[in-house]
């Protein structure tokens, strides 16, 4: 069953047709990778899913509900979380506070004027936050200021912040961009672990084929703003159209 359905989506920036006629459906509880060369429209597509951009044409539905016209925070409240290319965390706050904020958002909704309640009096929030930090192995660093952590730890923290809300769909925008091989492998292990433990759908945008082929169950190849082919990793590997998209027509 498809949890995310993208139909005929098109987006134009001035003279550039960034996306045209994108049809894509992500099945529930799978890891779906979207790959493609630079400028293929991967990030534009992702931004259309989270409410940062509104597509000119087409529709995006999540669990049968349209996502178009909703703000990022509303889409998140529906159960879609996003991991950014460079970890977006609350750098000046402690690791523990970083995780508590999504906990509050999940429990209290998008706004709550609880100006006289004490943060430390929220036992349930504290327990959930500690459990997720344990999961991503950051519990011993919880009093550190987030900005002083290593890149890999920031990535773990951002992952924890997304997961603690128990999203149904996790969107990952190049989660290993700029990482060393060891860090990349750690991230892959972390994502696999996450996938094993809970029912979650992941959509990954990635350049690194190593990541894609070690995780994805379905792959969509995007080229020049439109899906070229969608198939299983095995079939994608040798697909002539994919090679052409990546290496150019000079091959022929």
């Amino acid at each position: 069953m498809a949890i995310l359905e993208i139909k005929n989506v098109g987006k134009r920036f001035g003279g550039l047709q960034a996306l045209s006629d994108v049809n894509l459906s992500v099945a529930e509880n799978t890891v779906h990778a979207i790959i493609g060369p630079n400028g293929a429209g991967k990030s534009t597509l992702l931004n259309c899913l989270v409410g940062k951009l509104i597509p000119d044409t087409g529709s995006v539905t999540f669990q049968g509900q349209s996502l178009l016209g909703r703000k990022p925070y509303q889409i998140n409240q529906m159960g879609v979380s996003r991991v950014f290319q460079t970890p977006e965390i609350f750098a000046e706050l402690t690791v523990f506070e970083n995780v508590m904020i999504p906990c509050f958002a999940a429990r209290d909704g998008s706004f709550q004027l609880n100006a006289l309640a004490a943060v430390r009096g929220q036992g349930d929030i504290k327990d959930t936050a500690e459990a997720i930090l344990e999961d991503v192995k950051l519990l011993d660093k919880r009093h550190m200021t987030a900005s002083s952590m290593s890149r890999g730890d920031k990535r773990r923290l951002e992952m924890a912040m997304c997961l603690v809300q128990e999203p149904k769909l996790l969107l990952l925008d190049e989660p290993t961009a700029g990482m060393a091989r060891a860090d990349t492998n750690n991230t892959i292990d972390l994502l696999k672990e996450i996938k094993e433990k809970r029912d979650i759908t992941m959509a990954i945008i990635e350049h690194d084929m190593h990541v894609v082929f070690s995780m994805a169950e379905r792959i969509t190849v995007l080229a020049q703003g439109t899906p070229l082919v969608e198939d299983t990793p095995e079939n994608i590997k040798g697909h002539p159209k994919v090679r052409e998209a990546y290496l150019g027509e000079a091959q022929v």
């Binding site: 703000k71 990022p72 925070y73 977006e88 965390i89 609350f90 958002a105 912040m161």
Partner: peptide, 11 residues
């Protein structure tokens, strides 16, 4: 510290 993250955290 980070409004982008806040918005993508459902707030």
């Amino acid at each position: 510290t980070n409004q982008t993250r806040l918005n993508y955290t459902g707030l």
